[in-house]
Amino acid sequence: MTIVTRKVSLTVNGKAVSADVEDRTLLVHLLRDNLGLTGTHVGCDTSQCGACTVHIDGRAVKSCTVLVGQADGSNVTTIEGLAGHNELHPMQAAFRDNHGLQCGYCTPGMIMAAVDMVRRHGGKLDEATVRQELEGNICRCTGYHNIVKSVLDAAGRMEMASAAE
C-alpha cells in the first residue's frame, strides 16, 4: 500500500516541527496523531463546535477546517503551549477558579477562543459580548454560566496584567 505524503514544517508551541503527512490531513489530526498534542479535540464534523480551536499566527481558528498545507510555515499555539511549563495562563486559571468546565472536552477550545476574544476586545468585554463571541464554541455541560464568568474574570486579570507592564 502506498500513501502519498509530503513534508510540512511549522512552529508549534514555539518549537519547529515537521511531519510527513497526506495532503488531505487536517491540522487537528496532525496535532493529535503526529505530534501527540491531544488537548485539541474534535467534537463535530461541521466546523461548529470549536473544540478544535487553536491559534494560527495569533488568531483563533478551527483546526478541523485547516488543511496541513494551509498551515505549512505557520506559527501554531495549542492549549498545551498557552502557558509555560507548570504555569497557567490567566484564562486557564480563571476557568478553574470559576468552575468554567465540567467534562473538560470543550474546554481547551473554549480557552483558546476566549484568549483570542480578550486579545481583540481588551477590557471592554461585558456579558452580552462574551456570549455573542462564544458563538463558535459549544459546551454541553456548564450551561455557559460559569464559562462567561470565567472569561470576564480572566479579561479583568489580563487587563490588570497588561496595565502593570
Binding site: R59, K62, T65, V66, D116, R120, E133, E135, G136
Partner: peptide, 9 residues
Amino acid sequence: LGDPQVRAR
C-alpha cells in the same frame, strides 16, 4: 457572519 474563528479564516 459565522463566528469569530470562522471570521478569522
